[in-house]
């Protein structure tokens, strides 16, 4: 198996969010700004990479019938680790009391555990492949997820607030709808449509 191909497939061709429609809850819930989307994406990548590595190295010792529960325990442990780390080090409010990144992501951090991407990769890839290949697969899929969240977050922040990552590009308030819930659905709908067009183009060439 080609490692480079494993790594890049997560971005465009098999992008977990925009093509496979996995992990939609955190995608919509944490993409109200570019930084939130990116943080969520990276937190998920962390869990994905480590659980892939651990699962691929222990899977041959695990009896088939308790496979899923064991994987869930491994994943949930790494999620808890991320939760504590973020609570400790990404928990500083802004100077006007903008909530910290940890507070903004809120319930979505423990919910990484039910993100279908993580268990999906464990079951479909890590349990059947070697440690290094699983690491690359986790990294690729995780970064693909982070990429989609960052894109959606940037689009929403730009349209809704006129800025990306806090840098103001457009004066004024922007279209506020895009930072509120309806805008999340609309922006994602259009982004998926664009991705389809792009994949059709790529397939033709």
């Amino acid at each position: 198996m080609n490692n480079l191909k494993n790594f890049t497939k997560g971005f465009i061709k098999e992008n977990p969010v925009l093509v496979l429609f996995l992990g939609l809850c955190p995608t919509l819930g944490t993409s109200n700004s570019a930084i939130n989307g990116l943080s969520m994406g990276l937190a998920t990548t962390f869990v994905l990479v480590l659980s892939n590595v651990v699962i691929s190295s222990i899977s041959r010792f695990i009896p088939d019938k308790v496979r899923i529960p064991s994987y869930i325990v491994v994943i949930a442990s790494f999620v808890t680790v991320v939760d504590f780390m973020m609570k400790a080090y990404l928990n500083t409010p802004g100077k006007n009391f903008e909530p910290s990144i940890y507070d903004q992501l809120g319930i979505f951090i423990p919910l990484i555990v039910v993100n279908c991407i993580v268990l999906g990769r464990a079951e479909a890839f890590a349990s059947k492949n070697g440690v290094f290949a699983s690491l690359i697969d986790g990294l690729g899929m995780g970064l693909g997820f982070a990429f989609a969240l960052f894109m959606l977050g940037s689009v929403r922040e730009l349209l809704g607030n006129g800025s990306i990552l806090g840098f103001k590009f457009i004066k004024g308030d922007g279209m506020l709808m895009f930072v509120s819930p309806p805008g999340a659905f609309l922006a994602l709908g259009f982004l998926i449509m664009l991705m389809r067009k792009l994949n059709q183009k790529l397939a033709k060439n």
Partner: peptide, 15 residues
Amino acid sequence: MAKKESNFTNMLATL
């Protein structure tokens, strides 16, 4: 990779 047989002892031990 071959699937590992499941029996009560090894399931319990693994978990």
